[in-house]
Measured scan of single mutants.
Amino acid sequence: MVDYIVEYDYDAVHDDELTIRVGEIIRNVKKLQEEGWLEGELNGRRGMFPDNFVKEIKR
């Protein structure tokens, strides 16, 4: 799994989504079957977030 950095703020709409803020690092990200969404861990919580608000961290 890979990590992503947040490029744009996003406020969660549903309980299974993450609220993300610019500059945060989302860890252990995986792609979901639902197009346009990823799932990852942030601040001890796992949830979904839109893939166009983040950028993969290349290592």
Rank of each mutant, 00 (worst) to 15 (best):
E34T: 13
L38P: 00
Y10E: 02
D16H: 12
V22A: 15
E35N: 14
K58A: 13
E41I: 09
Q33H: 11
H14I: 05
R27G: 10
L32K: 14
L42S: 07
I25K: 12
Q33P: 14
L32V: 15
G23E: 01
V22F: 09
N52K: 15
L38T: 04
G40R: 01
Y10Q: 00
I25C: 05
V13C: 12
N28A: 05
G23W: 00
E41R: 06
E7C: 06
K55F: 00
I5S: 06
K30C: 10
F53L: 15
D15L: 10
V13K: 11
K30I: 07
I20S: 02
E17Y: 02
W37E: 01
M48S: 14
R27A: 08
D3M: 10
V22P: 12
W37T: 06
I57V: 13
K55R: 14
V2M: 15
D16C: 15
E56S: 07
N52D: 08
P50K: 09
K31P: 15
V29W: 00
R27N: 09
Y4T: 10
F49A: 04
Q33F: 09
R59H: 15
E24H: 04
D51K: 12
N28T: 03
T19D: 06
V13Y: 06
N43F: 05
L32S: 13
Q33G: 14
M1W: 09
I26T: 03
R21V: 02
G23M: 00
R46C: 06
I25Q: 06
D3N: 14
T19H: 05
E39C: 13
V29R: 00
D51S: 12
D51Y: 11
Y8K: 15
K30D: 08
K31N: 06
N28F: 04
R21L: 06
R45W: 02
Y10S: 00
R27E: 11
I25A: 03
A12I: 02
E56I: 07
E7K: 11
I5H: 02
G36I: 03
L42Q: 06
E41N: 06
E7F: 07
P50L: 05
V13G: 12
E34G: 13
I5F: 08
D51H: 13
G40K: 04
G23C: 01
A12F: 01
A12L: 00
L38V: 04
M48L: 12
V29L: 03
V22G: 13
G40H: 02
Q33T: 14
E24G: 06
N43P: 03
K31R: 12
N52H: 07
R45A: 07
V22E: 15
K30A: 09
W37Y: 13
I26G: 00
V2G: 10
R59S: 14
T19L: 02
I20C: 07
R46I: 08
L38D: 02
T19R: 03
R27L: 08
M1A: 14
R46E: 05
K55A: 07
K30F: 10
E24L: 02
L42N: 02
V6K: 03
D3Q: 09
D3E: 14
D9Y: 01
R21H: 09
V13T: 07
E34D: 10
E56D: 06
V29A: 12
W37A: 01
M48E: 03
G44D: 05
I25M: 07
D3T: 09
Y10W: 13
L18I: 08
E24C: 03
V6H: 01
A12E: 05
E34W: 12
I25G: 02
L42V: 10
K55L: 06
A12N: 03
G23Y: 04
V29H: 03
N43W: 03
T19E: 01
L18A: 02
H14T: 13
F49H: 02
R46W: 05
D16Y: 14
F49P: 01
F49N: 02
R45V: 07
E35I: 12
V54W: 00
H14E: 13
D3C: 08
V6L: 00
Y4M: 11
T19N: 08
R59T: 13
N43S: 08
Y8V: 10
R21F: 00
H14F: 09
I5A: 04
N28G: 13
Q33Y: 08
D51R: 13
E39G: 03
V29D: 01
G23T: 02
R46S: 05
I5K: 11
H14K: 15
R45F: 08
R21Y: 00
E56R: 10
R45I: 09
E34L: 14
R59Y: 10
L32H: 13
R46K: 09
